[in-house]
């Protein structure tokens, strides 16, 4: 690993942040897509069951980034810096994850969003909801694949992934970048 040094005299953390974001986004996307296809095939329970394994995957970016940075350069730093690394790794995860999702739904399988929507409607019908209630429920979320939906998902993902990776970053800094006593 080449060591790029910042003006503060500490090695750059971007290698660790980007690698952590890439790994997390790829694993998350694979599990997310598998879960979506299971839901489309009518196995809602199996889709959600698969997502259980991904429950904590989203928060792993902060852990990987801090582990790589602290152990890779044998550094110690305060938890505030761990939080920053977690936040940035979460941001990279979101950007890469959104790019993979757009690539998949716009190029590989353009009918996926529509199929997911139909599956959601079928699921609501089996729950005994009236057409009026279904329309009311669907009006709460933008049409899948639309610019509004993409933006909304990005903004919500930004807040959600930032916070969760900020927390995992703080915990990881406490574990991996702790000063020797």
């Amino acid at each position: 690993m080449t060591t790029e040094t910042t003006h503060h005299g500490m090695p750059s953390y971007w290698n660790a942040v980007i690698t952590a974001g890439l790994i997390t986004a790829i694993v998350n996307s694979i599990i997310g897509l598998a879960s979506a296809y299971l839901t489309i095939r009518g196995s809602t329970g199996a889709g959600q069951g698969l997502w259980i394994s991904a429950c904590l995957v989203s928060s792993i970016a902060g852990v990987i980034a801090n582990h790589m940075y602290a152990k890779g350069f044998n550094l110690t730093y305060p938890i505030g810096k761990g939080a920053l690394l977690g936040f940035l790794a979460g941001l990279v995860t979101l950007i890469v994850g959104t790019a993979i999702s757009l690539f998949w739904t716009e190029i590989i399988d353009t009918g996926m969003n529509e199929a997911l929507m139909q599956s959601t409607i079928a699921n609501l019908e089996t729950q005994g909801l009236t057409q009026d209630q279904i329309d009311q429920a669907l009006s709460l979320s933008p049409e899948p694949g639309s610019m509004n939906a993409i933006l909304l998902q990005f903004v919500i993902g930004f807040v959600s992934l930032s916070i969760i990776n900020l927390i995992s970053g703080i915990i990881s800094a406490k574990i991996f970048a702790k000063e020797e006593e």
């Binding site: 329970g45 959600q48 069951g49 259980i52 904590l56 909801l129 429920a137 709460l140 919500i156 992934l161």
Partner: peptide
Amino acid sequence: DFLAPFHWHYSFFSWVCHQDPT
């Protein structure tokens, strides 16, 4: 209650939890 799963609370946590109703 029937509208609850479509609120932003669920979108917010959908990245970090499977949200299985059961």
